[in-house]
């Protein structure tokens, strides 16, 4: 990895969930390897897109960065912070303000019993960022920033549409002026027309506040629109990472190639012949295949892929691939 002035540094992060049988609480040595050695950096004000099929560990990675999940091993640093992966819940508190989240589901992420104003203002009172009197003004200001009418502050979440609720969620994340926002599929629950509005809002806010995003999504078009760099995950590992344009135009890893091919393109008759269609399902993360986790489905596998584990290596400046084709 280059020694860039990274704001968030993730090194070899792992999360293994013990598999519990019905009869005993002991895991008998079996683990779901949800995240199995993930490393990346995010610079200040940058957006890193994280894509992959469902179950590939994107969300768990995000939750570890947020401190909602304790990593099994690895290192996690925010600026000049100590290793956050080893902190207890109490020691996390000073860093809570600096990492926030935008949730996927605009319905379950807002407490139905609180007014939206109280939801956005709660973080201000937890962190004592505003006196009781100033809180309303601060919340009104946040409402304006995300394009909501401050007069709707005293309403309940059920009175808002999905897009408006997502704006409330964004206002809540912004309330504590975080440095990094993890956005876990923030638009996948919304109408296509609303998706664009929310994406544009996120970009505007990034320009104004210089906040970094870890943008988790399965929709390549959305990720391609908002990210500067994109990481592709497969079975708990990053298989390819690089600048958005380069990665989209010339994908190197066979999995990325297949993923790009899976996106339907509005070009009738074009590209029909050379489409790569993956066969089989994602292997179980409980017993991942030996060697390269992708080899059972890889159209370009060759001798040794089922034994030798590839490493993520820099094949061009800022361009990382984990495939033996490039060794």
């Amino acid at each position: 990895m280059p020694e860039s002035p990274a704001l968030l540094r993730v090194r070899d992060l792992r999360k293994h969930f013990p598999v519990r049988s019905w009869f005993s609480r002991r895991s008998q040595g079996r683990f779901v390897r949800a995240v199995d050695g993930v490393s990346f950096d995010i610079a200040a004000g940058e957006t890193l897109g994280l894509v992959g099929e469902s179950g590939c560990g994107k969300t768990t990675t995000g939750r570890m960065i947020l401190g909602l999940e304790t990593p099994t091993s690895g290192e996690l640093r925010l600026g000049d912070s100590p290793d956050l992966a080893r902190l207890s819940r109490r020691d996390w508190f000073p860093y809570r303000r600096r990492v926030q989240m935008i949730f996927q589901d605009p319905y379950s992420s807002l407490n139905p019993r609180m007014t939206v104003g109280a939801i956005v203002g709660e973080a201000l009172s937890v962190h004592r960022l505003a006196s009781r009197r100033d809180r309303r003004d601060r919340v009104a200001d946040l409402f304006r920033q995300v394009g909501l009418d401050p007069d709707t502050m005293d309403r309940f979440p059920h009175e808002f549409s999905g897009g408006q609720r997502q704006r409330v969620g964004i206002a809540r994340a912004l309330a504590v002026q975080p440095e990094v926002i993890v956005a876990d599929e923030p638009v996948s629950a919304l109408d296509v027309s609303i998706q664009a509005q929310i994406i544009n809002l996120l970009q505007d806010l990034q320009r104004q506040h210089g906040v970094s995003f870890l943008f988790i999504a399965h929709d390549l078009a959305v990720v391609g629109h908002i990210s500067r760099r994109v990481a592709v995950m497969y079975l708990g590992r990053i298989v390819e990472l690089g600048p958005r344009q380069d990665l989209f135009e010339s994908p190197r890893h066979p999995y990325t190639l297949a993923l790009m091919n899976a996106v339907p393109k509005p070009r009738p008759g074009g590209q029909k012949g050379n489409r790569i269609v993956l066969e089989g399902d994602i292997p179980s993360p409980i017993d991942p295949p030996p060697g390269c986790p992708f080899h059972p489905r890889c159209p370009k596998r060759f001798e040794g892929c089922d034994r030798i584990e590839p490493r993520l290596r820099e094949i061009a400046p800022d361009r990382f691939v984990s495939c033996r084709l490039y060794d």
Partner: peptide, 20 residues
């Protein structure tokens, strides 16, 4: 529910999550 996660993210104490 994600709003419980979000309360934890805000730095809310156990006490606050339970009572609020």
């Amino acid at each position: 529910e994600e709003y419980v996660d979000s309360a934890i993210l805000m730095g809310a104490s156990h006490w606050r999550v339970i009572f609020r």
